[in-house]
Design a protein around this nucleic acid. Structure first.
Lengths: 192, 192
DNA sequence: GTTGTTATTAGCACTTGGTACTAATATCAG
DNA sequence: CTGATATTAGTACCAAGTGCTAATAACAAC
């Protein structure tokens, strides 16, 4: 045994998680064991074969792509939406979203959640952001769950504009407020 | 010939495009022809086999996973910086930054470039965005190279505030203008 | 009708990346 | 030394194909 079986299996899980496209043969040469050993390992760890792994990845993304054109384009997860009226999304702040130094979320992630929600709430083929005015009220930290609410407050069909107000909160405390002026490609009555 | 070969091949392309997970056998029974005919059709139409199709879908989504905002300190590449004065960065807009529908860049990517440049230009351990006011002047498309300039225009050390003006251009044309109010932690930081 | 062309079907060998199973070794621990 | 565990080898088999050859079928033109 090069190292322990346990150690190898731990690394194996990791490797496959990182890159599901790897074959048993490649794994065998990487870990300097036989293909059979890799297969025994996969069985013990209940890791499916290459083709099944790929199929899983593919079907997952396929569902997302076909189903929800707007929803998977959103940063965070939409939990409630009433088109052209209001929408709500949740975004869990992870380590990769914060400054390492102090654990405070970078502004552009909060902006991204707010902005993509503003896009989603517009009942149109596509909405573009024309203007934004955002105030970051309070720092957000890793581990925080940000709940963002978008409310459509004004609509000017002649100019193709819609105004959306945004409030983001963490544990009931407001962390971000702002508004977006959105451009919509279709006015009222032109909907499909 | 049930219908024409042409018609069958048209439908075949459609069917596979709709659901890449279908096998030749299933297709054969659906179109009431032999498996061999289906294979000849696929060759003529240059449609890869099931496994390749699935792999394509999977690898596409695998790449897409990194489509949310990256972890980098700065979005884009800083090409010139003079701390507490001005800074310049370049950001190449790729397919993953735009709406599939029309190829126009999502606002939050442009915001991210501008915001991270505003953070970088502040000569301090850390700067936080307090307020932003951004106008998206002109749509940016995939393939565009966005050059963003940040200029420090005002500083109020008592309130720990610094104002940064931003202009982004593509081929000399302005695509985004705005300003950021930044909080700098120098001195006794009022964290939290 | 006969001939030519295109379309369809059949059959076989071979490929990848496996599963399922059996059997032989190797390694280590008590 | 003996047993248990781990590793390797080897075989048969599977799905969903490719690549190839050859036999029909269908239809049009002369």
């Amino acid at each position: 045994m090069r190292r322990t079986k346990k150690e190898r299996q731990r690394l194996l899980s990791e490797t496959i998680a990182e890159n599901p496209f790897v074959t048993d043969e490649q794994l065998a040469s990487e870990f300097q064991v036989s293909v059979q050993t890799i297969r025994l390992d996969r069985m013990e760890l209940a890791i499916p074969e290459l083709r099944e792994r790929i199929k899983d990845v593919a079907s997952k993304t396929y569902e997302n792509e076909v189903k929800s054109l707007p929803i998977d384009e959103v940063i965070g997860e939409i939990i409630d939406i009433e088109l052209d009226n209001r929408a709500l999304s949740i975004f869990d702040v992870k380590d990769e979203h914060v400054f390492q130094r102090n654990g405070i979320a970078r502004g552009h992630h909060l902006f991204a959640q707010a902005n993509s929600l503003a896009v989603a709430v517009i009942d149109d083929e596509l909405a573009l952001t024309v203007h934004s005015n955002i105030t970051f009220v309070k720092p957000v930290k890793a581990g925080n769950r940000v709940i963002t609410k978008a409310v459509v407050v004004g609509r000017d069909d002649e100019r193709h504009r819609t105004k959306v107000e945004i409030v983001s909160t963490v544990n009931g405390e407001t962390v971000l407020v702002g508004e977006f002026d959105m451009y919509r490609t279709k006015g009222k009555g032109e909907q499909e």
